[in-house]
Write a protein that binds this DNA or RNA. Structure first.
Lengths: 193, 193, 193, 193
DNA sequence: GATGAATGAGCATTCATTCAT
DNA sequence: AATGAATGAATGCTCATTCAT
């Protein structure tokens, strides 16, 4: 399995750094190869083309992201607590990975439609997680029984994403993890009966 | 003033059509010129460079957007009603301009960081409007007195933006104006005491 | 009409020189542009792509070639004399254009299948000319009435082509036009009753 | 002697198949290795480089070709009969080896000038055979005493080669061996007194 | 003011060859 | 002898911008 070979992850990590530091449009394959400490051609032993690097990057990182949130959520049965963990984890993990935050919030959004469609596929995993929390909350009668899950999910994701993007645009000048309680409180109020 | 000459608007409208129909990355200056019925070189008599077209496009359209919402809000003193008008207007205006919705929600976001920063400058006008509503609501004790205006604004804008983007990605298959009451209700619950 | 603009012919002539001097595989577009005294991008105002340059080169030169032979044949009614003119003209014209001889006999044959198919299309004009001479000779009972035109044409073309290629491979060390009478005599003997 | 080891021939036969099926420009060393059932690196234990495979291929196959014709000619003393055997054998052997015909008539001609020059070296064996027949015919006063052997050889080879190439381009749709008598007859007429 | 022909910088990808195992 | 992962040089084409007319 190619994904388990060390150079696979090595190249993806190099791509994150190069894109974050140079911007999407100046992230040439040769720069990524240099950063990864391999020859240009080696990239193509692990990835079909440049597009494939970006999609794999997102899959790999977003996969970890969702798995990590799920494991942190383990044991929490209450939807309010689950949402708390989701927000805290989301903010915490991006605050711990400076480069990844820039890449996911700003740079990867410049990619063409094909790449973004594939990225959206990957995002669905995250959105499903949000849906699970919302369904749980409604079932346990913590959230409003008339809640439109689809719209509520858009509010939750839209709010979190906007807060993170604003923080990245402001060059991460403040501690985003400190915003979690207030965001959580706002969202819970919106969702509750 | 260049902005008052007919070709200025002619070129901006051409840019909206060309970007919406071809996508950001296939919207060459020569295509925009053709659509506007002018020579390539003529573009540069009205705009410094391609970047300037895009920023001007956003300024022009977002300016109209905010002015239009303000005029619809005239007479409403209640923050809850004002927010209602904001959401309804936002959804209504984009639902009336198919091309503009695609351009602002999907295509222009593919531009590079520099352009997006300038676009954010222009967005501030809209965000100020949101802030005004929120301040008003807090002052009139309709919204929670402990509301963090900055975060609340990010929630309002993030939610509205995500709802619109989802609608555009789904090719505007449903009537977005019908979602306004529910979104309004969710946000008001979040903001209220 | 693009073909009538001076730069069209200028680029084709440059391509002949560059290919003859550097070989097919080292004839980069940038070298052709430099030789033609234009920018790389200018090439693409006149030709769809590199392949198109090569096909156009062959069309242009082979077209002239056939037209030139036809005009030299004007007035000759006798198939034996027509064949004489054909051979003499063929040898003479290539002996006058050192670079073109190299390009048509050696370099262009390295092109890929697509290009060679299109080149073969163009060659058909020449082969039709040979057919006309052969038909004429048979009709006038100068050539054998049982002549298989298709095979005879392959003999005529194969012989002429091999003689020219041998001369080019030997770096044109001898005067090929002096070989015309003997080749003519051999072919006429073969074709005659 | 490397040429006697089984893998030597194995690689050459693989090269014929791969070139015939994929075309010269898509016949990568790795494909040849795969077809031969060896590792890429193994190729380089038997051949200096890719060029060397192609030249060796031609040497090996053309050597067999000439030896085979010579053995079929054994016993024929008459130049006319010898030429008959040459043409028949040439056509017969290529009609029996579908892949080889494609490779020698079409694909190998796309190789660069250096390789083609070396291939021509190998071809000399064949041309010497033609020369022998011609000399024999002249000595025995069957062929014209004034025959220019060099030009006559070019006619014989050029004609045969063109007939075979035309047959291969037409995807071997007809039986080329049936053309031998007519080609023989044309050539004998040309060469005779 | 308006034109549009000309410019030229910039980059993903392939594949023959090597060499540590 | 045999392997196959790794190497890295080499190039066609696009398109924003200019400037002579």
């Amino acid at each position: 399995m190619k994904k388990d070979k060390p150079k696979y992850k090595q190249i993806i990590d190099a791509a994150v750094v190069v894109i974050a530091e140079n911007g999407y449009h100046h992230a040439q394959v040769s720069k990524i190869a240099k950063q990864a400490g391999v020859a240009d051609g080696t990239i193509y032993l692990y990835f079909k083309n440049k597009e494939d690097i970006l999609i794999s990057l997102f899959e790999e990182k977003m996969g970890q992201f969702v798995r990590s949130i799920r494991s942190r959520m383990a044991g929490k049965e209450n939807a309010v607590e689950q949402l708390e963990v989701l927000i805290e984890s989301h903010f915490y993990m991006l605050s711990e990975d400076y480069h990844l935050a820039i890449v996911t919030q700003l740079e990867l959004r410049q990619s063409n439609k094909d790449i973004r469609l594939k990225i959206n596929e990957v995002l669905k995993e995250y959105l499903l997680l949000v849906d699970e929390i919302l369904h749980n909350g409604v079932k346990k009668q913590i959230f409003s029984e008339e809640l439109d899950i689809r719209l509520a999910r858009q509010m939750v994701f839209g709010t979190i994403d906007e807060v993170v993007t604003t923080w990245v645009i402001n060059e991460q000048k403040y501690d985003i993890t400190k915003l979690a309680p207030e965001i959580h409180s706002l969202l819970v109020k919106a969702l509750s009966k």
